[in-house]
Nucleic acid binder design. Structure first.
Lengths: 333, 333
DNA sequence: TTGTACGCGTTATCAA
DNA sequence: TTGATAACGCGTACAA
């Protein structure tokens, strides 16, 4: 079934069929209806490849995501797909892992599919060393790129992120103001978001004339169990702390478990703040106070920019969303 | 940059370039290298649309998933994408929600993209009423369809699932054998998987001459908080139980919270078993015993079938994986 | 081993 | 308002 078959059955030329297909108004109501009827009857669907070839676009956006099974990233992927669909774009998903080389390859592969734009999900794409981001700038020469939860300046690059600096600054400040003196900061990686959070933590201390100490800034890895062990080891080595600000709910959940085993009362002796307000925050005991990083708003904002760019509209190059502290049982402000 | 430009620069015909592109061995090493060099230099990538048009395939598989932000489904999406990529297929993702009409539309839209196959993620696609699955059978007339975590017989339909019946049967049996008499079964929906689990529960009772009572089989909805309230209401109405077998970790986590507030000791007075062995199972206190439904294995098995079908190989139409009970702190067998 | 020429199914331009 | 026809870029049968 192709446009020729339809045109023949309807007794018109393919040009007219094409016009009906693309909603041109230069077709008489009568022929239009006839053609529509034939299409219906023949169960005809235009060939997207041929259309793609002619228009050099299939209205597809590539989503690059290190790990679509990570709850935070999965959320972003979900909302991105929904927003794109609403705007008439299909979503080509590629999970690329956290290794630079794999990402580069994945992006290149995606580009070779002649997609209309790229969504980079997660702040891990924005590394400290500029050279390690060069491939993104390169790709942006071809098609617009939007970063979800990261910032990076560059031609044809659009960024949507939440104000992690401010969120951590505020919560750390609040802890200091209520008298906490040894606040542990836990993070996984120095992604864009990770750096912002850390800077927020340090700034809150500095503003109060306190010099941040390295021993209170701890890089974590692994899940809840591993992190709990890591905290226990620090504790056994003599490190003492009266609050935990964590860049991820995972570590905060580990903090709760650590505290229970060490018989430290939460939140009386130890305040704990997580990040992302994930499902974990509701599962722990006590339930976890967490900073909601507002993935949905961030993602939708990013996609909106991208779609508008593709429409040829002028758009702001950044969207910055404010986080929201969700207080539960692990803090008492 | 197209194949003509390359052929011209290399001083050969497009046919030869095409041969190099497609790895034909009927090209002399010398010209092959020359062409490869030109391609490299010109940064040439073959046009996938043109190729798709000619071959009537772009090597793309559509993934239909009700909700890519659900942790269980996100995991399946992730592994599906990885396996497909490995087999040389791209992944078109469509999140379709849980409404029949939306799913039908989404599948139809996906089909219109001339994809090579479809992956249906999640057992909710397999409903009890056959007519509500007719659109899937219809689509399978065009291209192969694989179901992840669901079973449904039909031409050109392949299924990969885990043995939920057996898993629930076994764990329920174990609870009965250690003397539990009022086991609550919690479920969200009567998807294929949901039905299998429920049947497993009932069968374990029946085998022991116990007639399952409706009041112990409870349909839940919502997250941890809502579910906790739901359990509290049942309790206040006088329902008593000494074990909970849950079709989802969410409800099991709610069970733990309920028990704590009602001052029921877990696992001494109340055993709780969750399902999926999700991150929740590690976050609760005590940690949750949970049935691992082995998403990864299930998904990989399903994709493998699909890929083999597309290769034209004969394949088994089902893959059945055994679940694994992961014992933690909410049970004591 | 290499080249020629056609088909794939659209969209778009121009002429009628 | 309609039709004829040229792109679009590739794969491939067939010829050389």
């Amino acid at each position: 079934m192709n446009i020729y078959d339809i045109s023949e059955k309807a007794g018109v030329s393919i040009a007219t069929v094409s016009r009906v297909l693309n909603g041109s108004d230069k077709v008489s109501e009568k022929t239009k209806n006839r053609i529509l009827a034939v299409m219906e009857e023949m169960n005809y669907t235009p060939n997207v490849f041929a259309r793609g070839l002619g228009l050099n676009s299939m209205k597809v956006i590539g989503i690059l995501c290190p790990d679509a099974s990570d709850p935070y990233l999965a959320n972003a992927v979900y909302h991105a797909e929904q927003s794109l669909k609403e705007a008439g774009y299909d979503t080509l998903l590629s999970c690329c892992g956290y290794e630079l080389e794999d990402r580069q390859k994945a992006l290149q592969l995606l580009m070779s599919k002649r997609i209309d734009g790229v969504v980079l999900i997660g702040s891990s794409f924005v590394e400290e060393e500029k050279e390690r981001c060069a491939y993104i700038l390169e790709a942006a020469k071809e098609i617009p790129i939007v970063l979800i939860n990261g910032y990076m300046s560059g031609e044809n690059i659009y960024c949507s992120f939440c104000n992690d600096f401010q969120a951590v600054f505020q919560v750390t400040s609040a802890l200091l103001d209520k008298g906490k003196e040894r606040i542990l900061f836990l993070y996984r990686a120095l992604s864009y978001s990770g750096r912002q959070k850390m800077e927020g933590y340090k700034a809150a201390l500095k503003v109060r004339g306190i010099e941040p100490e390295e021993q209170y800034i701890v890089r974590m890895n692994g899940g809840i169990q591993d992190s709990k062990v890591q905290l226990q080891e620090l504790y056994e080595k003599g490190l003492r702390f009266d609050a935990i600000v964590s860049g991820e709910d995972t570590f905060a959940a580990a903090g709760i478990k650590f505290a229970k085993e060490a018989e430290i009362a939460v939140p009386e002796e130890l305040d704990i703040v997580g990040y992302n307000n994930s499902i974990l925050a509701q599962a722990t005991e006590p339930e976890l106070t967490s900073i909601d990083s507002r993935v949905r708003a961030t993602t939708i904002g990013g996609i909106e920019m991208l779609v508008n760019v593709l429409k040829g509209e002028d758009v702001e190059k950044k969207v910055c969303i404010s986080c929201k502290l969700v207080e539960r049982g692990t803090t008492y402000f």
